[in-house]
Design a binder for these strands. Structure first.
Lengths: 342, 342
DNA sequence: CTGAAAGCGCTTACAG
DNA sequence: CTGAAAGCGCTTACAG
């Protein structure tokens, strides 16, 4: 491949020193070993001249560190996760780490597989959005001593790092906002998966409704994740093509749910917010060209990424006592026209 | 980290054989070296029992292959590139390769940087969407002997692999479609970057217009990529807030241009297709909730990904004579309501 | 069919 | 301040 690979040995010979010196200098450990300034300069110059590129594999093999982290999200083509990944990448690269991504598509087997591949690639740690049915796998990875941070959802009780949203508060924000706009029949659309974030959003919704004296309007619709399109279409039909239902507002537990429901509503000529007020979760480009601006709950994505990377790097670099800290972040409601009751 | 790393040596000792045997068996080279079946079974069983995981770094160091490929696209959060990346990943993993992605954001310095990082990570090859000003860099990488495939755009003349769209035909399809719908004043919106795909789309547009006798209606608007939002807003104002302009149809050279222009049109109350017919390039989720379905030129994304991976793996595995084949794929026009002249 | 051994390029105690 | 040397885990000619 490369005409001839340049190694520290070539530099050492060219500079007339030992490879140790070269290694020290290349790793910025010159001072610690008190290499003379002149030597440092000479070695650096030689390295540049010969266009030296350290061999990562050798470095990894020797040091046991790859400076690579693995990230598994639900679906990287979902704008919420795409943005998080982008933030993780930026932050990681700032610390000299490379990131390898994968999407589980909410399938435990794919998740497991991805994690296996990442670990066999020798990643130094993992940032994972756990899906249904991976609890034991998480415990196992943790037991193996792999530095680990869970994102968006939590699972099990292992003392791994966690970066989560205050989902109860998020749902409450949505309910209070809609109630403030005069809605009483506020219903929630969620997925039929046992994910901590969804459960908490459901609980937060119900609690907020109770608190507002709307307890008997509580209704949670759960849709099959792997058949969203069809199912949300069916649900919208069921909710709006029978005049007697009387739903006034819908809160969607994720952006994908909101997007597919809005499409369905369009097909059936149901107008937002005239016929139903809507609050979505997370932003999504797809709302940009919608007839009205969409009210939604926003997560502090930048911070989520930053906290996750920070937490992971801490546990990688401490190399022990990777104390699993849990960070819970605050949601925010961004009001648009979709929830404006006329 | 791991309580204790299991190596081939542990397996060899446990099975009472030499490490060579273990290595052969683990690499499926049992037959070639005619290792007995019983031995093979015994070693495999031992490996499973001890939960052996090969050390990738060691393997890479020794073999000079990382089974990792690097991909640099313009912007992975753009649905067109996101889909391509997904396809590349699927295909690569089917061949036992892992993929590391990066976005250049159309900046030559970021591009260069990413490529540097990827190479220093020891990727076996690169799939690149070249941006403006990286021609020499591409030649350089190629000269270094790094297997390389260019995607979406081409640059230079090095005999690297290329997977491209027939952009002239794509633009012609759009023009012919609009002309067929009765439009004569068809204008093109493109970016002011010197990218081969954009140039070809512009040429294809002009040529098709000429051919239809609409040569004097040819008008190409070029927008600054790094200021799309504002610029496309300004352009839409300029085109439609003066009643005398008379534009009947717009062809957008990319999905991002179409998306931001449609947003702007919405703000100014310009209705599609009543006030102007529209043909976009590539699909985008963002069109899903638009008032009308958007006519657009589609690229065979699956095939693009597949061809790119195939071409790259071929040149990696031949390890020489990486003959740079160019694949040019056909576009398709998917008609929607946005181009339906009333 | 099988084993002993070299070596991929780097890092890092260790001895001067 | 500096050098010689071991060793990370694996692959693969080479010699039996």
């Amino acid at each position: 491949m490369e005409p001839k690979r340049i190694t520290i040995r070539d530099i050492a010979e060219a500079a007339g020193v030992s490879t140790s010196l070269v290694s020290f200098v290349m790793n910025g450990k010159g001072k610690r070993y008190r290499v003379s300034e002149e030597m440092t300069r000479r070695i650096l110059a030689m390295a540049r001249e010969l266009n030296y590129r350290p061999n990562n594999a050798a470095r990894s093999l020797r040091s046991g560190r790859s400076h690579t982290i693995g990230v598994v999200v639900s679906d990287i083509s979902n704008s919420f996760f795409a943005e998080i990944c982008r933030c993780i990448e930026d932050d990681a690269s700032r610390h000299g780490y490379t990131v390898i991504f994968g999407s589980s598509d909410e399938r435990a087997d794919k998740f497991r597989n991805l994690v296996e591949v990442l670990l066999s690639k020798g990643v130094d740690g993992l940032i994972l959005v756990p899906c249904e049915g991976v609890e034991r796998r998480i415990e196992e990875i943790h037991a193996r001593g792999v530095p680990l941070v869970l994102l968006d959802r939590t699972v099990g009780t292992a003392d791994v790092g966690r970066v989560l949203l205050d989902n109860r508060k998020a749902a409450a924000l949505a309910v209070e906002h809609l109630a403030g706009a005069g809605c009483r029949r506020i219903e929630l659309v969620s997925y039929s998966m046992r994910l901590s974030n969804l459960c908490e959003r459901e609980q937060g919704y119900a609690a907020a409704m109770e608190k507002l004296g709307l307890g008997n309007a509580v209704r949670i619709h759960r849709i099959d994740f792997h058949d969203v399109r069809r199912r949300s279409d069916m649900l919208m039909q069921q909710l709006f093509l029978r005049p007697d239902r009387g739903v006034e507002a819908l809160v969607f537990a994720t952006n994908s749910l909101a997007a597919s429901a809005l499409k369905a509503l369009g097909r059936y000529g149901i107008s937002v917010p005239r016929d139903v007020a809507v609050v979505a979760f997370d932003g999504n480009e797809v709302f940009d060209l919608y007839r009205v601006s969409v009210t939604s709950i926003r997560q502090p994505i930048r911070r989520i990424g930053r906290e996750a990377v920070q937490s992971l790097l801490r546990s990688i670099e401490q190399d022990s006592a990777a104390v699993g800290s849990t960070v819970v972040l605050d949601p925010e409601l961004v009001a648009g026209e979709s929830s404006r009751r006329l």
